[in-house]
Design a protein around this nucleic acid. Structure first.
Length: 152
DNA sequence: GCCAACGTTGGC
DNA sequence: GCCAACGTTGGC
């Protein structure tokens, strides 16, 4: 059982969208490191839902992995903006998992707050220039952020 | 297999 | 909207 951070631009997909849908495939990851992380996910893993490219950016709540990793079907769909001409049904370069809504934090934990906590200084998301849309979260970091989000 | 050019991400 | 930082591509 592992912890993760899922990053998304809320204009295209927010935690509220996931809440309404209850469950959704996390499609469109087109970065090898992020894909490799996703391929190591297991049902039951938990993740923070991070909102990027908004003011302020930060963690909105929690979601849960509810499937094994499987082929990202949007890579084969010519009409999708995630279409990948180098992927085929037999050899799809990209993977995804299904995620389910768990909770919305009472208190939105901003990036600035994350950076303010010395225990969180090694979190991937607080590193400068980080562009990974999927990253691992350490259990100790998970506890700290969860406490912040639930308002202690 | 190097690396310049390009496209994208994401904080500000 | 700007632009630094980064990953990917493709010519050589």
């Amino acid at each position: 059982m592992q912890y993760w951070l899922f990053k998304s631009e809320p204009d295209s997909f927010s935690l509220n969208h996931l809440k309404k849908m209850r469950k959704s495939p996390w499609d469109g990851v087109r970065n090898y490191m992020a894909r490799n992380y996703m391929r190591s996910m297991q049902p039951g893993d938990l993740g923070f839902f991070y909102h990027s490219r908004v003011d302020p950016p930060g963690i909105a709540g929690v979601c849960k992995v509810v499937s094994q990793p499987y082929d990202d079907f949007t890579a084969l769909d010519k009409k999708s903006k995630y279409f990948d001409p180098k992927s085929t049904a037999d050899n799809n370069r990209w993977s995804l998992v299904d995620v389910e809504y768990v909770e919305t934090f009472k208190h939105f934990v901003t990036l600035e707050e994350l950076k303010d906590h010395p225990e969180l200084k090694d979190m991937v998301v607080t590193r400068k220039g980080n562009r990974l849309s999927i990253s691992p979260v350490q259990p100790a970091e998970w506890k700290v952020v969860l406490a912040l989000g639930r308002g202690k």
